[in-house]
Design a protein around this nucleic acid. Sequence first.
DNA 1: ATGTCAAAAAAGATGCATCAAGTATCTTAT
DNA 2: ATAAGATACTTGATGCATCTTTTTTGACAT
Lengths: 226, 226
Amino acid sequence: MPEFTTLEHENLNSAVYGALCDALMQGRFQPGDRLKIRDLAEQFGTSVTPIRDAILRLVNDEAIVFRSPRDIRIPVMSESRYREIRSIRIKLEGLAAETAAQVATSAEIEILERIVRENEQAIAAGDRMKGTELNQAFHFMLPQIAGMPVLNGILRRLWLQMGPFISDAYLPGGRAMIDYHYPVIEALKRHDSAAASMAIVDDILLGGKPVLERILRGEKREARRA
Amino acid sequence: MPEFTTLEHENLNSAVYGALCDALMQGRFQPGDRLKIRDLAEQFGTSVTPIRDAILRLVNDEAIVFRSPRDIRIPVMSESRYREIRSIRIKLEGLAAETAAQVATSAEIEILERIVRENEQAIAAGDRMKGTELNQAFHFMLPQIAGMPVLNGILRRLWLQMGPFISDAYLPGGRAMIDYHYPVIEALKRHDSAAASMAIVDDILLGGKPVLERILRGEKREARRA
DNA sequence: ATGTCAAAAAAGATGCATCAAGTATCTTAT
DNA sequence: ATAAGATACTTGATGCATCTTTTTTGACAT
């Protein structure tokens, strides 16, 4: 069970939700992990009510599932589900990149470059945690630059579902998640929508290869057990 | 305040959520309507807890917003937000149509034809409620045929947000929402992905014109009031 | 009529007791 | 030693009391 980041929020409910989201996005939960409302309440030092609220929201996001009526768990990701999410991301992040390419300012492009630069350092230092965090930061900058808050929310939910699978998939090919970011930045600089879209699609397909492989390994393990 | 459909569910929480979703999707709430947990609890004949659970989920879906800490309301839709949602729908429903065209069975196509036929009758009978319901049923069949449950969930949330705006937008051009459904069915019959995608885009853009116009009227009214 | 302000009422957030259903553990007869 | 049944425990759902803050209301002055 991971440690949680304490967030200042308007209410406990949102603070817990935010902390659980962070933990999920950072891959600090393993697929199949069980969550217990009372345990979490003790960890957060609150009553069960704000925890239930947060859990229910996460269940609504499909980032957590009720395996049975009293059994709350981090779901496992099937190959077909991952492929579906990948198809959706290709369309949506493609749209974000297209739109961002049309409107990106040089200040915004500099932010992207800074993120990639920091990511280089994180990889060099072998800091996987920081690496995945900066990878996410890069991806979420595109809908933000594009001025698409609804899209941002949809992608946030998808990343929430992928969270438990991306963190430790990047061990082998450490550079995989970053090499494909440079062509995106170049396309944004040229305000080339088509190239930006294609570049982000490359990143999702090629950079995401280790993630798919990890999921396939996970499914094999499940199959062997059964 | 609308009447709610009572749904049999595993628990009260989900039953209330389902009923509120139905009400939202059917346009039985007006933008700006205020919801009160205690009032709803009385209407549903439950305590406040299951209502809070459901409201929180809807807030998470952005189908309901907290205008201020104690003021829960149906949000108004800005033009830019509607356009963003429309762009997203074009990509996602396009993907659903593409995929559906590749895998649709004749039985599934028959279901689509039946929906459109019933929709014709509803329009002829001037039954707006039934019309919007069947319009939705048509759109949600595509991700279902495509076998894309994640996509289905995303679109469901988007329709939840559009719900309060679509119902009464279809008064003037009653046929607008249905005429563009035929080319979709034809494309599915030919297993023509590209045509299916283009046909659903046409439906979203052209068939959705009255909705955009309604939103623009709503914004003008707001501006006048200020 | 309109704006201001204070008292009263309302409303969501939080904590907690209790319930029902499921799970684990222990007992006991074989 | 084992298996069936009984008992105790676990756990999310629900209801409800209470807290704090917001919203409403109404009196009053302009």
